[in-house]
Design a protein around this nucleic acid. Structure first.
Lengths: 199, 199
DNA sequence: AAAGTTCGACCGACCGGGCGGTCGAACTTT
DNA sequence: AAAGTTCGACCGCCCGGTCGGTCGAACTTT
């Protein structure tokens, strides 16, 4: 998959990160102690500090990984879509699927923003806007190409509404339910974009 | 408005609660110290304990107030709606408006669930389901009355999708923006229920 | 009306405990 | 033997919460 082989240390770091994400999502960042994380991965607290410089760094890494992955995925999705409307649908579909497949991680990202150092908090905001822009630009293109389509609200509001429907999945999706993440994504995308249809 | 006059102590309690909600929403429950809250309302920390027995009680009160208000409002909305489709639209509209007008409070309710004592956490879940049922029942009634309407997904998923679009407003709505909470509610309701229309 | 009584409101000082984080000594690997 | 890895013991800090007591307004009592 990835070109480089992972060093032993990197493997450890990854395990630490995913364990931390899991516990943060269940108890909250502030309520989780480094001791708990250490116990969960089977090492002592000081050993964690061999791989990360602080508790905050764990959180920051979690955020920036998600952010990078998300923006890259969005870029690819838009680039691969034949029409703006397809771009919108695929953006929704893949985003829902990603959210459902990483519920714990996204819970942390959505609910621990206030724990971020000011500098990263800004970055998060910027990148979130960048993501909204992928969506908004595709929408604008679609609307321009099909002036008969009536949104009934400002485009920005429509984008936020869609993102709400999409992101909220982190709260209620259950893998044991009837739909796979992809099915769910397609269903939600179809319903949300019904208003955009041009027949 | 309310029948009873508020005692001095009750006024203080209310002030404490709304201040706590504001600070909790900005810094998170765990990261907020009782000292901060005390400073913000201009009293000393021990004085807070004259009105509330613990930090947790502040949070619990916040939750149960919102829960009570929300369920009552939903009941009334459904009762007043002439048709199931109207019920769905009004439920969405009023819920969006309420969310926009109480962003800080709802942020706390959505993001601090893990801080709740197990007993109340269950109650919250029950009540949330009760709210979903108001929605789901109206949807079922509408679907039965108009079998031609195609949802394209299981009703429960549609309900969750709508609730996502609705609840997410706590994250992005800005009162300085172009729409009032009610306008926004109507726009979102109209868009989400476009699929349900029967013309 | 003055003196004594009661009580809600209030707070300075304090406590036990758990937290994030450090350090140095010990093992393991090469 | 040097480098990388691990952890027991420890530290300073701040938190939620308590304690003992003060203040003043409203009622009794005389």
């Amino acid at each position: 998959m990835t070109g480089t082989t992972l060093s032993r240390a990197d493997t450890r770091r990854l395990r630490l990160l995913s364990t931390a994400a899991e516990i943060f999502s269940k108890r909250g960042f502030r309520a989780t102690s480094m001791k708990e994380i250490a116990a969960a991965v089977g090492m002592s607290k000081p050993t964690i500090y061999h791989y990360f410089t602080s508790k905050e760094e764990l959180l920051v890494r979690l955020y920036s990984d998600v952010l990078d992955e998300s923006l890259d995925a969005a870029r690819e999705t838009v680039a691969a879509a034949p029409t703006p409307l397809d771009a919108i649908r695929d953006l929704i579909t893949s985003r829902v699927a990603y959210t459902c497949r990483n519920q714990a991680l996204l819970k942390v990202c959505f609910e621990e923003e206030h724990e971020l150092p000011a500098e990263l908090a800004e970055q998060v905001l910027e990148r979130r806007h960048a993501f909204e822009d992928f969506f908004g630009d595709a929408l604008a293109a679609h609307l321009e190409a099909h002036p008969k389509v009536m949104l009934g609200m400002p485009p920005k509001i429509y984008v936020n509404m869609c993102l709400g429907a999409v992101n909220w999945c982190y709260k209620w999706y259950r893998p044991t339910g009837p739909s796979t993440p992809e099915e769910l994504g397609r269903q939600i995308a179809a319903s949300l974009t019904a208003t955009l249809d041009v027949r």
